[in-house]
Design a binder for these strands. Sequence first.
DNA 1: AATGAATGAGCATTCATTCAT
DNA 2: GATGAATGAATGCTCATTCAT
Lengths: 207, 207, 207, 207
Amino acid sequence: MRRHDLQEAILEAAQYLLIREGYGSLTMRRIAQRAGCSVGSLYLYFDSKEGLLFALMDRAQERLAERFFDPQIQTIDAPRERLQALARAYVDFGLTYPESYEILFILHPRELASYPEERMQRAYRLLDPIVEAIEDYVRRHDLEMPDIRVAAVSFWSALHGIVSLLLAGRLARLRLEVDHEALIEHAIRQAIGGLCRLMRRKDNRKT
Amino acid sequence: MRRHDLQEAILEAAQYLLIREGYGSLTMRRIAQRAGCSVGSLYLYFDSKEGLLFALMDRAQERLAERFFDPQIQTIDAPRERLQALARAYVDFGLTYPESYEILFILHPRELASYPEERMQRAYRLLDPIVEAIEDYVRRHDLEMPDIRVAAVSFWSALHGIVSLLLAGRLARLRLEVDHEALIEHAIRQAIGGLCRLMRRKDNRKT
Amino acid sequence: MRRHDLQEAILEAAQYLLIREGYGSLTMRRIAQRAGCSVGSLYLYFDSKEGLLFALMDRAQERLAERFFDPQIQTIDAPRERLQALARAYVDFGLTYPESYEILFILHPRELASYPEERMQRAYRLLDPIVEAIEDYVRRHDLEMPDIRVAAVSFWSALHGIVSLLLAGRLARLRLEVDHEALIEHAIRQAIGGLCRLMRRKDNRKT
Amino acid sequence: MRRHDLQEAILEAAQYLLIREGYGSLTMRRIAQRAGCSVGSLYLYFDSKEGLLFALMDRAQERLAERFFDPQIQTIDAPRERLQALARAYVDFGLTYPESYEILFILHPRELASYPEERMQRAYRLLDPIVEAIEDYVRRHDLEMPDIRVAAVSFWSALHGIVSLLLAGRLARLRLEVDHEALIEHAIRQAIGGLCRLMRRKDNRKT
DNA sequence: AATGAATGAGCATTCATTCAT
DNA sequence: GATGAATGAATGCTCATTCAT
């Protein structure tokens, strides 16, 4: 139990520092200091700084899964509503755990180069529920969508766009005094609306 | 002439390394090595590492302006087509000058904290043509859009999402073997379609 | 125990280099090399080069206090003998701990600009016993000395002159083959004699 | 003529910077900047930084000679008054040309290690007029002074003490709010008084 | 005579990592 | 299990000096 406690404290500290000060300022010294242990102790639980980062990634993936693969969402019957709930969950995850989001989707690939591919893949299962919802929608409305994978990635990219813009604090820097909540709402509706329209169009062209 | 050559080589080297290896690995030594000069020479052309980074920012902004504020685009009469041309230009800029895009829109603001705000603002003028196109569209079709600024940022965020995902090379890593061209096409149409639909909706509600 | 050993070794090394090679050549690398440790270890014991220098100052002040504020001297009743003992102690201190003397009184204040003033002041308490001795002398012999502070500083400056000349090794360089002991003896007697004479003179003028 | 002009400007600049910013901050770049020429030009007139420093020393010696070997002083008949005039001239030189004084008598010997000995000696001829004056005094008053060289160095050391204390700005730092003029006056009279008294004493003991 | 671009060596400092205790 | 002393390598940056022009 004890063991786990310190390990957890270390991860917590690292995560806290990562988003506050950035990866460049994330040092083993500071992590130890914040976790309330010695630098040496870090190496009892993690092989290296990279190992610690990987553990952080694993953790971030779990958190994402918790939110995104929420059973409550899966049971929403109407695919469009499900898509909306997924989008909401995704954005919420990003804004609630900015550090996790940063690690998973923003951190430079270089830092994660040697992160085992199989563990990496897990994070991107998030596309599956999106694909499913789109398929569902297409099927139910008897529409067409030639490449659903493309549609899903495109949908995801729109969500990623809004989250990463908000997290980077660029809007604030730009003095773009825009209400975040309204922006998120707008962006999600824009993505879903655009997606559905594309399906319809495909349909129209055929006729 | 020579003078300019090395300065250019340094910027080129820094840019190359920045995107390939990330900001954390961007060191003056490596820049010098890649530029084929001594570390000291870097300081002949730039005050500091930060200064070099700022020069890179300036450069990226110019490149963005070239593509995005292209007069040919401005003269497209139909606002929807103009919007599409702007979106294309934005994505093209990002894919053609990935380093510039990375510097402008992905690099964490932390690293550029002291970049003069007025110079920073220039980059974000890109919202203006988008705002104008939306306004145009709304006006011509006699629609309503309560907060055009929100709509513009939302539109931008969709473009940013697709570009940053492509640049991060995440798709490749994910073995998401998706055709980039199709994806871009899809994403742009999704964004425009979603945007226009949101306007119509507003209209519908009113009636 | 060990801990203190290396700290001491570092101070010793820094002191040695400071006097032998001058402040300009005092580098962390050389200190580490001479102390027999790595450069990084220096920073385990001292915050910075400046911090190390300050520790050296503190140390020098302690050594000065030991010699100069010797209780045995304070109890000498006859003020003139006490003055002589003080002068001896001062010069002895300078010659015994040349590095300490150099740090305290020769090193340019520039290098120590941020040394806390209150700690600095301690070193200059040395004027107090001199002032007291002069006051005593004046009182006992019923003489006059309008500005005792001036007299004390003047006396101190004579001692400083002889010590700094000897320490700088200038006499040797000049081939001024002069017996150091005789020179010190002479200088001290000259200072005391001159001081007392000035008092008498003041007296004479008044009458 | 031109040639001389720039050389002079360089020396002037170096001297100015030397005292203002200290030897540690005396860089070729800054000298060139202040002298209004390029760094390379410095090497047209001086072999190296050390060479420039040596030229500065030569210059300082000349200035000292001008003041100290002033014919007007040499012609003062009364040896005691001559001694006083010499002391005054010495202190004046130090306070008027602090940079020169610093170079000649305070700069760490290390920096001057390779200054040609014969040129070094010139600076210390200053002892000759002092020796002569003392000899004169002894002779005229029929006194004794076993080692006149010791007496002269001792006298010189008193003057050096007061000048170096004032130049280092220590008194100011100590908040020893002492009138400089009074202090100098006092110190010189103390030195002369002490010196003469020592001669007398020698005499007394003999009888 | 004068420049200024270029550099290698060096600066203080910080880093992730190791290991005896 | 935990520490903290120790380190080699790397960081951004400055230096005196050289040399083609």
